[in-house]
Every structure is written in structure tokens, then in C-alpha cells.
Design a protein around this nucleic acid. Structure first.
Lengths: 324, 324
DNA sequence: TTGTACGCGTTATCAC
DNA sequence: GTGATAACGCGTACAA
């Protein structure tokens, strides 16, 4: 029989093929261990079954969750995922987007935290070039108009946390971490402040800084040295930062929880083991990744088709109820 | 000018091209924002610039480190990395290897912990089929003959830990976690036992179990209920397991460190924040990933060209020096 | 429904 | 050194 017939049965063509042929083809394919050459398919079709995932730092603890969701969704949809790491270097980011473009991917997921409006023109060009060839650009967080964007819900999650902690009796808080102008952290700061103030609390200060354990430690150390009244709440912009804070508190001879309260954001796998158990907000990165993938592959995708992701506050020992 | 000439300058062909042409081509490529179509290149060349990475569980904390090393190496070598997650399901693993084969990758990195000799015939067929088309199979851990394998050094790392802890004055230990027959955990158990016994200690028991926080918690809880003398050392097969152990110790009203000592393996990012700081062995997953990638792309690769990876013991508060 | 023939974007072989 | 041209493996009009 002809190659065309075989091709028709192997790829899910709309065309009908006689059952007898179909069986023979399937049998032969099975026996020979045939697997379609994806590259050749891609050249012929003009579009590949690839979704590219570009993140700022693969080593980040939350990345695994995100990637997990993306990969799971990809398998469901019959796509392959390629990953790259910008290492927070805009130049490298540009180069990588260009490399990814070489794959003619169906979608590109951008998990690169960025300062508002700081995108280089080169990157925007590259992105529009990609979009022009039918690649769906989906940015995690807030994207430019014309791009598909999907966000975690940092603001509302942090707001819930603020509310909850105010209800637990906390009145004075300091926010630690988050680079100024970074959308994701600004949202967390704003949300927390809103919730906490609405509950009757006061955010005394915001100590901006990198989202690292070291930065959290250093900031908390300074705060403690300057004198921090008992019952003060230290809100780390992420669990990693909060871990640093908790460590600094202990090193200063204070007790996490009863003396100085600490809260974080993300609920990384080990946050329950930090200090007396870290109060935090569970950020559903896996679900985010899953949605991102769907946004990357679906032909028609609606911005608000899905309900917002739910971010649950999880209260642990680091913020016990404060008896007034 | 001809397409051939253009092709010659764009891809790193060995052939020489006049400087004048070269400049014109580069200029045009720049202006048009041209990027080579990797799929087409792959079909034409018969081999792609792809390395596939298959792991048991992307969500695993150590995966990020591994992936980081792989991706970094890939960028250096001009390769693209595709990832997939077997979710510890052999059937899915088979399907995924087949999918990856569709990409005709230059290499396949298998980070799937497996029971010794439990590979399905189907998988082996698939793997040899892949190898037949020039794909380098590199397995993390111990591989079959003919495959490129590269291991972390679980045994020697655990042995160092055992030695160190014996020197710190510990005499009685119980090992927790690790599925029986799993090479990686068996190596850790054997290595630890060897080091600890050589130092004068005794491994009273090995409690096999899953490599999860829950399993660690449950096992430790049981041990504590059965009565555990002060100064006993609980060695968790991984930091995640150790975290569970530490939690169980605290929940039982005992103190981690002074009362019951706990040690782990991996040195995950947050292990210093677990309890009073978790004593563990730093497992260089990033370096492992980097080496794995090189093994996946290099034409001629020698098994023992690189020196063994170094696994440093890091002693923290969970195992203070024991005064006799 | 099935087969033929061409095109996808690129590389490689061969003459020039 | 350069330019035609035949592959590469597959999808798909179009004709049969």
C-alpha cells in the first residue's frame, strides 16, 4: 500500500481509512516499533507540538511544582515541554527566546518575574515575531495586551493572610523582602497591608530586598537589633525569606511564635518544618502551571474562563493566637 | 546569491565563505529576524539538538537542582532540553520514552529510580531502539552495560556521614526510609552502616519505607512509642524523611539534638531550617545534572573521565557532639 | 476511499 | 569558493 495511507492512519487524520488497512498499518507499526519523527512532522505541518517553558530560576523551590503542572498538562494534550533558565539575565532571556523560536513552538510560557515596564525593545520584538508565527505567548503574572496572561492571585492571597493574622490578634507588622517595582511582590505587599489594616492592624514598615533566605535573615537581624517589641509580626514575602527571618529571630535569642511571629508565602514543601511550623499561604503553583499550559496550546483561549485559583491560608505555630 | 551559501554561513559549516557574502547574509538575517528552523534542521541532518530528561517526580525538591545543571550544560553545548515526568509509573515511563524517541534526541537522561533488575522488557527494547538510532542513553545511578551511567556517590557520602557521626560520639543508630531493593537507598544504608560501625557505632535496625515526609514521621513515631533511649541517632534516608522524623520527635515531646539526634541526606535548600538545623550530606545534584548532560551529548564519553563528585557532610544542630 | 506528487525548510553532494 | 539539486521524513492537495 502507499505511504499516504499509512500516514493517514498513524496521525489522526480526518480522512477515513478502511478498517483492514488500518489494522495492517497498526500491526506493522507495532512490529517495527515505528514512531513518527516529530521533527519531520513539524516541518511538514509548519507547526510543532512543543511548548517552551522559560523561567527565571529553575533551582527555585517552587519551580518544580510549576513544571509539574505544565508537564502533566502537556502529556494530557500530547505536547512536549522544553525548558530553559534565564538566570534573571535579560540578555540571556533574549537569546533563549530566540532559541525557542527556532523550535517554532505552539506556545511559550514566560515565568520570568519582571519589573513593571522594564522589558527591552528587543525582547518585545522577539515576542511579537513569535506571536506572528502563531505561537501563543502566555506570561505568568501580568502581561502586555495581546499576550495571554494568567496570574496566581498574589494580592488576594496575601490579603487573606493579613485578615487572618489580624483576627489572630496581631496589631503590628513589618513586611520583609520583595524588590521594589516587582509586580508579584508588590501585590503581596499591597494585599497583606490591605487585609491587615482592615482587620485593625498596622504595617509599620516595608523592608524591600531580594527574595532570598540571606536577605530575609539580614533584614530581620537589623530589625531585631533596632529593637522589636514582643508580639510583632514579621511577614516574609516568600517562605524562603521567612525561613531567613525565623533563623535570625532564633539567633537573636528570641522565640519564633510566642515572642516574634513570622509568616511567609508559598507554602513550600518544607515550610511546616521551619521553626515551629511556618504560617503561610498555599500558592497552587502546580495548578498555575497546568492552566498556563492550556493557555499555551488552546486555539481559542479566554482570559477569565477559569475561576481564580484558590490560595488558602495555613496557620501554623509561628503565629499562635495572641491573647490580648 | 544561493540558499546554499546562506546556509553555510548561518550554521557553523566547516566550509569557507567569502567575507563579503558572510557580512551580507548576517546583515539580512539580522534585519529579517531570521532564526533557523530547528525541526527542519533536524530532518535534514537526521539528528536533532535535543536532550530528553525523564525523571520520576518533577515535584521532588532535588529535581530543580538536577534540572538546573542539565539546562545549564545544555545551553553551553547548544542543546535544548525536553522534560517529562513518569510519576513512578512504569507503563507511563514506557510511553514517554517512546514519545521522546519521536524527537530523535541526541541523548536521553534517565533519572528514574528503579528497583535492581526490575526493568520491563518493553522498556529495554525501547531503549535499545533509541540507542540504535544514535541516542545516548545515560542513566542516573547504576545502568545496564552499554548504557552510559553516572552516579552520585550515595555510598561514599553516607559512609562519610556515618564516620562523622560516630566521631561525634553517637553509638546507636536506626536507619529510616528507603524502599527495599532500591539501589540508591541501599547504597546510602550500606554506606552509612559501614562508616558508623567502623567508627564504633551500631546500627540497631533499618526501617524500610517510602522516601516521604509522612513515611518518616510514621516510622519515627512507632520507634519512639516502642521506646528510644536518649542519645539515639535516627538517620533518614533523605532530608525529606528526616524532616518527618524530626517532626515526630518533637510531637513525642522529645527534643531534636540534645535528646534524639537526627540526620538526613541531600541537603535540600531548607534543611538548615528544619528543627535546630539538620545534619546531612550535601548531594551535588546540579553537578550531577551537568555531567549527565555532557554524557548525553559527547560523542565519545569515558565512564570515569571525571573524578567522583564530592559529597560533603554538613553537621548542624540536630546532631550535637555527644559528651560521653 | 486510495494513490500520486509536491511542498515544508534545511543540509549535503556534487559539479562548476 | 559557489551554485544547482537531491535528499530528509512526513502531510496533504489533487487526481484517480
Amino acid at each position: 500500500m502507499s505511504l499516504a495511507t499509512a500516514s493517514r492512519v498513524l496521525n489522526g487524520s480526518t480522512r477515513k481509512v478502511a478498517e483492514s488497512y488500518r489494522e495492517r498499518v497498526d500491526a506493522a507499526a507495532e512490529k517495527l516499533g515505528y514512531t513518527a519523527n516529530l521533527s519531520a512532522q513539524a516541518t511538514a505541518r509548519g507547526t510543532s507540538a512543543i511548548v517552551a517553558l522559560l523561567v527565571a530560576d529553575i533551582g527555585d523551590v517552587s519551580f518544580g511544582q510549576l513544571a509539574s503542572g505544565v508537564v502533566r498538562g502537556a502529556e494530557e494534550a500530547g505536547f512536549v515541554v522544553t525548558i530553559a533558565d534565564t538566570d534573571r539575565d535579560p540578555e540571556r532571556e533574549l537569546r533563549l527566546v530566540r532559541t525557542m523560536r527556532g523550535q517554532r513552538p505552539r506556545g511559550l510560557i514566560l515565568g520570568v518575574a519582571r519589573n513593571a515596564g522594564s522589558d527591552s525593545a528587543g525582547l518585545q520584538n522577539e515576542l511579537t515575531a513569535l506571536a506572528a508565527v502563531g505561537c501563543h505567548i502566555v506570561v505568568l503574572g501580568e502581561g502586555e495586551p495581546g499576550q495571554r496572561s494568567i496570574s496566581l492571585g498574589n494580592r488576594v492571597g496575601a490579603e487573606s493572610l493579613g485578615t487572618e493574622l489580624a483576627q489572630l490578634g496581631y496589631r503590628d507588622a513589618v513586611v520583609v523582602g520583595g524588590l521594589e517595582g516587582l509586580r508579584a511582590s508588590d501585590d503581596r505587599i499591597d494585599g497583606f497591608t490591605a487585609g491587615f489594616t482592615a482587620g485593625g492592624g498596622t504595617v509599620a514598615a516595608v523592608r524591600h530586598g531580594a527574595t532570598t533566605r540571606e536577605a530575609g535573615y539580614a533584614a530581620a537581624r537589623q530589625l531585631l537589633a533596632d529593637g522589636l517589641p514582643e508580639g510583632t509580626l514579621l511577614f516574609g514575602i516568600s517562605d524562603v525569606v521567612a525561613a531567613g527571618i525565623a533563623s535570625a529571630v532564633r539567633d537573636a535569642g528570641r522565640e519564633v511564635g510566642a515572642d516574634i511571629a513570622v509568616a511567609g508565602f508559598d507554602d513550600i514543601p518544607t515550610s511546616r518544618d521551619i521553626g515551629p511550623g511556618l504560617t503561610t499561604v498555599r500558592a497552587p503553583f502546580a495548578a498555575l502551571g497546568h492552566r498556563a499550559l492550556r493557555a499555551a496550546v488552546e486555539t481559542d483561549w479566554q482570559p477569565d474562563a477559569d475561576p481564580p485559583l484558590t490560595l488558602d491560608v495555613v496557620v501554623r505555630g509561628s503565629t499562635p493566637r495572641r491573647s490580648t
